[in-house]
């Protein structure tokens, strides 16, 4: 398989008001890989994710997702791109006025012309995959946080998208559910070839699922490491990166400069 980039980011500059978050970062995400964006708190992981899914326009630079340049494309191309991606938000972002089944059925009804019975069956299959059988008729306010997250994932993958984005998927989940979610990510990736872009700082989860990671840094406003997480843990030249992967305390705020030793 030729390594074909499905997401390309070139010289991305992001700003909040006057504050620069990223100062010209570039990276690729290849088709079919599980790609993890990580970094300490406040380094702009979620901001980067919001740039990738087109919620925030970049201050400068170019982002291309599934062949669509999201800064310059026309409305139609952008909407087509949106059909190819699914996003699991941190708080699941289920629509509170609809049942779980209706939440998942919403994009399916909008973008396919399957008959109602088939839509219901598909929704049942997808919720079943998330171990949510029997909760189809519940409202999001009636279920627990972990269940919401799984229902959110069922909705994100409703259209079987090419790329799935996860914002902190394991935050607020118990270890068993978090591990199940990791398994599901691996499973979906190997079964459907779905590209996964995950923002997290759960180390266990990173080592379990990630094919490749990039690590952002608040002070240099750029990428300080890129590659296989296990290799980075053991061999990175950057002190802060090693510290992060080995879960060592201290120095987290002095990462700037980081004279390579």
């Amino acid at each position: 398989m030729g390594r074909q980039a499905i997401i390309e980011v070139r010289d991305l500059v992001a700003k909040y008001a006057e504050e620069t978050i990223f100062d010209g970062i570039s990276f690729d995400v290849f088709q079919g890989e599980i790609f993890v964006i990580l970094g300490g708190s406040g380094c702009g992981k979620s901001t980067l994710l919001k740039h990738l899914i087109g919620l925030i326009p970049p201050a400068a630079g170019r982002i291309s997702v599934a062949g669509c340049d999201i800064c310059r494309s026309e409305e139609k191309a952008f909407r087509d791109m949106l059909k190819k991606i699914g996003v699991l938000y941190q708080g699941a972002a289920l629509l509170g006025s609809m049942t779980l089944a209706d939440n998942v059925a919403l994009p399916i009804k909008e973008y396919t012309d399957l008959p109602q019975v088939s839509v219901e069956r598909l929704v049942k299959m997808k919720l079943g995959l998330m171990n949510l059988e029997g909760y189809e008729d519940h409202l999001p306010s009636q279920i627990s946080g972990g269940m919401k997250k799984r229902a959110g994932l069922a909705r994100a993958m409703a259209l079987n998208p090419e790329i799935l984005f996860f914002d902190e998927p394991s935050a607020g989940l118990d270890p068993v559910t978090a591990a199940e979610l990791d398994n599901l990510i691996i499973h979906l990736n190997s079964t459907f070839g779905t590209t996964m872009v995950i923002v997290t700082h759960e180390l266990e989860s990173i080592f379990a699922v990630a094919h490749r990671v990039i690590m952002l840094d608040k002070n240099t406003r750029g990428i300080i490491a890129e590659g296989d997480p296990k290799y980075l843990r053991d061999h990175s030249e950057n002190r802060f990166v090693r510290q992060f992967f080995n879960r060592l305390p201290g120095l987290a705020n002095e990462a700037e400069g980081l004279e390579k030793r």
């Binding site: 089944a101 995959l129 189809e136 190997s190 079964t191």
Partner: peptide
Amino acid sequence: GKALSMYNFDLLGKRDKPYKRT
């Protein structure tokens, strides 16, 4: 085969009722 086993194809459709609505 991967997709079919992921969704437990053998079980699907057998005890299948559309989900109940209130």
